[in-house]
Amino acid sequence: MSELKHGSPVVEKTAHLLEAIADARTGISLASLVEQLGVPRSTVYRILNSLSAHGLVARVNGGSIYELGPKFVELARRISPGADKALLVEAAKPLLTAAADRIMESFKLAAPEGLEMMTIFAAPSPGDYSLFIKVGGRSRKHVGAGGKLALAFSDYSEVEAYCAAGLEARTPYTITDPDALKEALIEIRRNGYAEDNQESNLGVRAISTPVFDGNGQLVATISVPFIGEATPDRARSIRREALDCATLLTKAIDGRHPLSK
């Protein structure tokens, strides 16, 4: 284990110890840490005790195996769930999976990435004709419900910069006029959800709802894509499920709606 030339030896040892614990997906013993790090047992033991006291390390089921503690989750959420999409997916997975089972439609979780939205999780519908959603897929923000929602909750200067980059058409229904897009964004922000009416793919529509972090910043969107036109009752059912999931996920990550008091 090499140490930084002008750093603190204790901090360096602690950093390497935390990395070793993080790499051991199912936890690691004191003996294994001593062997792996090449540090005296007493030193490793003292570091573990200090980290445990601050919640940065915890014993698995109170035994002799160590894992990262709950404090790391709290610290990561303070930065922003967007900084660690794994935390966001972990919280969203049971919510979206249950919702997909209830209404027999696929659910998509996407996060803003510059000019694009990136799909970070998909809960497929158990139905026979569910839409396939590619995790890792990207699309420009103005062509889909989730992207328009992200723009609607962005600063005006960000929207201006986005429009200046050009609004290419994906289908004949894609909004390509900056003024029309800005008008749509005002309505989307007012409604609290967005719709995609064949703007990204012909024959496919979607309803999307926002997820916010503790600073009231949009960090993700939950979208429900479906084929064809939904009846008014069906559309209300999809919208209600998507809104409920977004509210629950925002709460799960200690977020808040920017318009809430």
Rank of each mutant, 00 (worst) to 15 (best):
residue 68 L to H: 09
residue 68 L to G: 07
residue 70 P to V: 01
residue 71 K to Q: 15
residue 73 V to L: 14
residue 74 E to P: 06
residue 75 L to Y: 08
residue 76 A to W: 06
residue 76 A to V: 06
residue 77 R to G: 10
residue 78 R to T: 04
residue 78 R to H: 07
residue 79 I to L: 09
residue 81 P to I: 14
residue 81 P to R: 08
residue 83 A to V: 03
residue 83 A to I: 00
residue 85 K to T: 09
residue 87 L to F: 03
residue 87 L to S: 11
residue 89 V to R: 05
residue 93 K to M: 10
residue 97 T to H: 11
residue 97 T to F: 08
residue 98 A to Y: 05
residue 100 A to I: 07
residue 100 A to N: 05
residue 100 A to E: 04
residue 102 R to F: 07
residue 103 I to H: 12
residue 105 E to I: 07
residue 106 S to M: 05
residue 106 S to Y: 08
residue 107 F to N: 04
residue 107 F to E: 05
residue 109 L to A: 02
residue 110 A to V: 09
residue 111 A to G: 00
residue 114 G to F: 01
residue 115 L to T: 09
residue 116 E to A: 11
residue 116 E to Y: 13
residue 119 T to N: 14
residue 119 T to Q: 06
residue 120 I to Y: 05
residue 121 F to G: 06
residue 122 A to T: 06
residue 122 A to L: 11
residue 124 P to F: 09
residue 129 Y to I: 02
residue 130 S to H: 10
residue 130 S to F: 12
residue 132 F to E: 03
residue 133 I to M: 01
residue 137 G to I: 02
residue 137 G to N: 13
residue 138 R to Q: 10
residue 141 K to W: 02
residue 142 H to C: 06
residue 144 G to A: 15
residue 144 G to W: 01
residue 144 G to L: 03
residue 145 A to I: 03
residue 146 G to D: 04
residue 146 G to K: 02
residue 147 G to N: 04
residue 147 G to Q: 05
residue 147 G to Y: 07
residue 147 G to M: 06
residue 149 L to N: 11
residue 149 L to C: 10
residue 149 L to E: 10
residue 151 L to Q: 10
residue 151 L to K: 10
residue 152 A to I: 12
residue 152 A to R: 05
residue 156 Y to H: 11
residue 157 S to H: 11
residue 157 S to G: 03
residue 157 S to R: 12
residue 159 V to K: 02
residue 160 E to Q: 15
residue 160 E to M: 14
residue 162 Y to V: 03
residue 163 C to L: 06
residue 164 A to W: 02
residue 164 A to F: 01
residue 164 A to E: 15
residue 166 G to E: 02
residue 169 A to Q: 12
residue 169 A to R: 14
residue 171 T to A: 06
residue 173 Y to M: 13
residue 175 I to H: 00
residue 176 T to Q: 03
residue 176 T to C: 12
residue 176 T to K: 00
residue 178 P to R: 08
residue 179 D to I: 14
residue 180 A to K: 13
residue 181 L to I: 05
residue 182 K to S: 07
residue 182 K to T: 12
residue 184 A to L: 08
